[in-house]
Design a protein around this nucleic acid. Structure first.
Lengths: 214, 214
DNA sequence: AAACAAATCCCCGGTACCCGGTAATTTCCG
DNA sequence: CGGAAATTACCGGGTACCGGGGATTTGTTT
């Protein structure tokens, strides 16, 4: 019985490359590809796969949000997160969202098929780099017991996205039809929540989150 | 006669995936993989391939610098740039560096093999998105005739990298053992040269250049 | 030698960011 | 319903960014 897999990434070429890598495995069948979160939701509902390999950094709906929504409708689906970064926040958020596996793109190529098989059997698979961050986080149990603390509000995400575009507070205020002072409060709350202290760090976080493109 | 190809990308999994995609083509042989610019130089000198597929965003030596150095030693080598972005500056810099092809990762998967065949026959291959930016640039011929205007000095690149890390001017000054005022001059010169006007834009540019990781 | 670019340093002024606190309203969830 | 969170808004202060100018040294090019 083949393991039915769908792939989600915003780069078509990466999708095609991952597909041909997985097609070499006789026990794995790639039954669909999606370029963004919305397409992934539709694809999963239609094809009912066993495993979804989801890139975190996708435009529009990012991988974390897509995973949350996905598992509401398809609780039996197994999700493997695929990301360029092993950032602690992403790992925890993605696992909290319900992902059963986490790989970084710097992992060896054959780790993906091994992860798929492990996850399909109900196991959890983390690549070594990520496993390290998990045990670190387990030390200060606050970050595992509660949520990660990084739950930005809808408006805060909007502000963050515009900040990362290079917009000034007043420009953002005009765009969002609120006072500049409010924009500043949002920014400061974002910085406090994420423990970041400069526009550069905010920008990089927004890029990792998929809120804007580099 | 097979086309001998080497691949360079900082993500091992992407390398493996691209390799298995290309191995389906009977007339293309992948003879090596490199994870950064230095490894690519060594690999090319050792294997003497026909074509090098180079990701622009690599840590350490980025794809543009690697391409320049590569073509000094191996003028007959054909380089295909592979990037997540179709930014005008990168396209022009990469082509000026000597690349014969430019693909974005959002291109269709089979474009890579088509591009490799075209380049191996001495042609030039640009994906549609990039071709558009080229003709746009051709309109104001200044950007094609002369250099792209983006020739940052060594110190300017150092400042830019630290700025994109979230460091303040005084922190950068301490790190580089120069006065804070000098750091500010560098920053302003960078902004003027690149026509960017905020730390967020500088950060994104630095990321695209591979000067820092998101 | 002269011309030029790069890198270094300083001054000034304006603006926007960064951080602190306070507080009202709306929205969401137990 | 009641509390928590999100969203809205303002005040004030310090610092750093942003843009303009000028000046010197060094090294390269012509």
């Amino acid at each position: 019985m083949n393991i039915r897999v769908v792939l989600a990434d915003d780069h078509k070429m990466i999708l095609a490359a991952l597909r041909s890598m997985l097609e070499k495995e006789t026990d794995i069948a790639v039954v669909g590809e999606a370029g963004d979160g919305a397409a992934l939701l539709e694809l999963v509902a239609r094809t009912m796969p066993d495993v979804a390999v989801v890139d975190i950094g996708m435009p529009g709906m990012n991988g974390i949000e897509a995973t949350q929504r996905l598992l509401v409708g398809q609780p039996r689906l197994k999700v493997i997160a695929l990301s360029a970064y092993s950032d602690k926040r992403f790992v925890l958020e993605m696992l909290n969202a319900g992902a059963k596996g986490y790989l970084i793109k710097a992992s060896a190529g054959d780790e993906l098929s091994r992860a798929i098989r492990a996850i399909a059997q109900g196991q959890t698979y983390l690549c070594p780099e990520v496993a390290g961050t998990i045990v670190d986080a387990a030390r200060d149990k606050t970050s595992l017991t509660g949520h990660t603390g990084v739950n930005l509000g809808r408006r805060e995400r909007e502000v963050l996205a515009l900040l990362a575009e290079g917009k000034s507070s007043s420009e953002i205020a005009a765009r969002m039809h609120i006072a500049a002072s409010t924009v500043e409060v949002h920014r400061r709350n974002i910085m406090r929540k994420l423990d970041l202290h400069s526009v550069a760090e905010l920008t990089k976080y927004a890029i990792r989150q998929g809120l804007t493109s580099p």
